[in-house]
Design a protein around this nucleic acid. Sequence first.
DNA 1: GAGTAGGACCGCCAGC
DNA 2: AGGCTGGCGGTCCTAC
Length: 321
Amino acid sequence: MAVHRVVVLVRDGLIPLEVGIPHRIFGQARSAGGEPLYEVRTCTLRPGPVRTDTDLTFLVEHGPELLRGADTVIVPAADSDYEPGGDTDPALPAALALIPPHARIASICTGAFVLAAAGLLDGRTATTHWRSVPDFRCRFPRVRVDPDVLYTDDGRVLTSAGVASGLDLCLHLVRRDHGAAVANEVARGTVVPPHREGGQAQFVRQPVPEPADSPLGRAREWALAHLAEPIGLAELAGQAGVSTRTFTRRFRAEAGVSPMHWLIEQRLDRARELLERSDLPVDRVAAAAGFGTATALRQHFRRLLGTSPGHYRNTFTGRRG
DNA sequence: GAGTAGGACCGCCAGC
DNA sequence: AGGCTGGCGGTCCTAC
């Protein structure tokens, strides 16, 4: 199988962190046999020095011709996105036209402005940095903007919110391509939380989770240790030593999702690992992940992941087998 | 597929 | 005053 080619399209005025994200996440992904699963390269509109919004400059060797061979194109932000007309470089549309029809295109932060200007987001749902949402809405009325998610996935076109949500987007793509086990291994190596669903609020009051010995951290640890058992809101709040009302409020402020929604995500994560790594029948997987019935697992799987447990298992065990 | 019951979520407000 | 907490109750969701 040919290595999947990821091309990062950078422009003047980029944010160094955003360029590092796809290189790190895709670059670290390995097959079970230890082979790299992606080749990550960088191109720009005119090869040479590319300015960043800091005191360092990147020297980019490749021009837009690299896009011809891309399987996935990542478009990070540039400071020209904030200007009234956006990035008006005439070489930009020509470069985008080189992207083959089968390739996926994903934006980080205000890279969504580039995708929108090219018409790639018309009639679709997209997201961008929460601070740029009003500007984005004005300039691209044909795009539905969801300001409350970390990333959107429309199959071929994906967008992510501000800066670090690019991590979530790239991990999501690795997970989509190669399953939870590979993506979790990359996350562990990069020391980021394994997975955040796209539907999570962008504006999280406390971006760094509370330590495990804090009340909310204890409740989460306890939930993960008892995932196979029925867990209610009252029990979680009891673990944290606060009322259900305070627990719900603090949890949402910290995690960006409600406690039970978080719990379902954790259970789906457990279910996915079991589907990939074991031969347990689906009803046993459901029980082990804390879903009361296989039907409940199927419903949540379909709703949040857009597929069925059986199909998910075939996709990933078949590929590695 | 509809009906029901229980639970979750969250705005509101009073108390500390 | 201002922030945090937790009870109440309406609404919505989901499991059965």
